[in-house]
C-alpha cells in the first residue's frame, strides 16, 4: 500500500493537528519507511489467532456504586487556560 498526501491531511484533520503542506510532504516521506516496517506484519498468517488487547487475561474488577469524589473544581480549574463562572471557556460551539 502507499499513502498519499491526502491521507496525511485527512488523518491530521481527524487528529486535530494543523500541518502545513511542506510538513505533510515530510510526514508522507517518513510514513513510507515506517509503513514498510509495519507491512512486515502481513508476512505471517494469523488466521484463527485471537487478538490480544491486554497484557493479562483477566476480567474487569468493578467498583461499588458509591460517591467517593468531592468537589475540587477550584483546584482543577486553577490549571485551566480560561475559566469564567466556574465554566471552562472555549471558542463558540456551533451545532
Amino acid at each position: 500500500m502507499s499513502l498519499t498526501l491526502d491521507d496525511v491531511k485527512r488523518v491530521a484533520m481527524l487528529a486535530r493537528i494543523e500541518v502545513t503542506d511542506s510538513e505533510s510532504e515530510q510526514i508522507l516521506e517518513q510514513f513510507d519507511g515506517i509503513f514498510k516496517l509495519i507491512e512486515q506484519m502481513q508476512s505471517v498468517d494469523t488466521t484463527g489467532i485471537e487478538p490480544m488487547s491486554h497484557a493479562q487475561d483477566v476480567v474487569a474488577r468493578l467498583r461499588s456504586d458509591a460517591v467517593t469524589a468531592t468537589d475540587e473544581h477550584e483546584l482543577f480549574q486553577s490549571v485551566a487556560p480560561e475559566v469564567e463562572a466556574d465554566l471552562y471557556l472555549v471558542p463558540k460551539v456551533i451545532e
Binding site: 502481513q42 494469523t46 487478538p51 490480544m52
Partner: peptide
C-alpha cells in the same frame, strides 16, 4: 489489516 493483525501478532509473541 493493521490494528487487529498487530494484536494477533501480540498473541503469538506471548
Amino acid at each position: 489489516a493493521y490494528y487487529l493483525q498487530a494484536q494477533r501478532i501480540r498473541r503469538l509473541v506471548a
